[in-house]
């Protein structure tokens, strides 16, 4: 039996109250949203906060508003996000492939964006980790993936972050001293331990998705079709002229570093071009050259490196309007929108 450690629990009613608790309690307090990442981690003693600040009762975190942009409250569950008719295709496809029906009923959008980084030497029980003398990310000194590395290389494994980065989403962070709005890609740092640029007293309160009429898509590589964390996520979004020329494009990669990131060079390369097979191949090569997977997730490292440009190519062909259903089924055993409900 893996019991949770003892903790105290507070259930604030407002964002300001929650931020004040975080500011007063320091690093010993942690936010609990759906708990689907934090509670398994606490069972394995990755995190042992003395105080949990439960977000369920905080007002205003589950709002959706439709203006010039679509604003999604960070406390919405992924199932609730999927029920929103206006969410762009790329976000829908990413959210629909997170975990399982049960976990999407529990896990929130904010929790997904703040998901802890993952590694084969970290996501193990306390006893397992003790047996190898722990690792750099938690309780130890050595990174077992890259023993000479001073930096922890645990992998960012959120599916919705790359999809939202490609869509140009921004996030609102509210702390005890004030609030700020930043581009989602700036929320992340390429460090497996200190992976968020969020200040300790800040809550992520909402995600702002601009409505620019972009086409978007998300392609996920995972072992099982039913559920698994991504070992590669490719998100692409673009705006086209009536004749099919790309006006603007953004490509983001997930599970390819300790943070999800935008490959600006690939997006810039696509501007003013039509998505011919040659153009797609070249953009895919540019984007894939930035994927630096490490040997710390599921599936063979060299193969994962090898298929990165294929996956970017699938995403771009999808944006071009090719019928990609057979490839989707073969690679992910998942068809967007089919079955329809997904919730």
């Amino acid at each position: 039996m893996m019991r949770l450690p003892w903790f105290e629990c507070r259930a604030p009613r407002t964002v300001a109250e929650a931020a004040a608790i975080l500011a007063a309690e320091g690093p010993e307090a942690m936010l609990l949203a759906g708990g689907t990442d934090l509670l398994p981690n606490m069972k394995r003693r990755h995190q042992t906060p003395r105080l949990l600040v439960c977000l369920r009762r905080v007002e205003g975190l589950r709002k959706v508003s439709n203006g010039a942009a679509l604003t999604l409250g960070a406390g919405l569950t992924l199932t609730e996000v999927l029920r929103e008719p206006r969410i762009p295709a790329g976000l829908r496809q990413a959210a629909a492939q997170v975990a399982t029906v049960h976990l999407r009923n529990m896990g929130t959008l904010g929790g997904n964006l703040c998901l802890d980084t993952r590694c084969t030497y970290y996501n193990q029980t306390y006893e397992w980790r003790r047996a190898i003398g722990f690792c750099l990310k938690k309780d130890g000194e050595i990174c077992w993936v890259a023993t000479a590395s001073k930096r922890c290389v645990a992998v960012s494994s959120t599916d919705t972050a790359p999809a939202l980065i490609a869509l140009g989403a921004r996030v609102r962070l509210v702390g005890a001293a004030g609030e700020r709005e930043i581009a989602l890609e700036d929320l992340y740092r390429n460090d497996g331990i200190d992976y968020l640029a969020r200040r300790p007293d800040e809550l992520l309160t909402e995600v702002i998705v601009p409505d620019r009429g972009w086409r978007s898509t998300y392609w996920k590589l995972r072992r099982r079709g039913a559920f698994d964390f991504p070992v590669l996520g490719v998100a692409a979004a673009a705006r086209f002229a009536p004749d099919g020329t790309v006006l603007e494009a953004r490509i983001a990669l997930g599970a390819a570093a300790s943070r999800p990131f935008l490959v600006e060079k690939a997006g810039a390369f696509l501007a003013e071009k039509k998505l011919t097979d040659e153009v797609i191949a070249e953009a895919a090569a540019i984007a894939a050259s930035r994927a630096k997977p490490m040997d710390n997730t599921d599936l063979d490292l060299y193969w994962r490196k090898d298929v990165a440009d294929d996956f970017v190519g699938y995403a771009l062909r999808d944006l071009r309007g090719d019928d990609m259903r057979a490839v989707r089924l073969r690679t992910a055993r998942y068809l967007p929108g089919e079955p329809p409900g997904l919730s």
């Binding site: 398994p40 394995r44 049960h102 976990l103 009923n105 529990m106």
Partner: peptide, 21 residues
């Protein structure tokens, strides 16, 4: 006990959720 098997699924407010988490 880690959300990976579904053996503990119950309905919370009518929705399937994992009682272990």
């Amino acid at each position: 006990e880690l959300g990976e098997c579904g053996a503990c699924a119950v309905l919370v407010d009518g929705e399937p959720q994992l009682a272990c988490l």
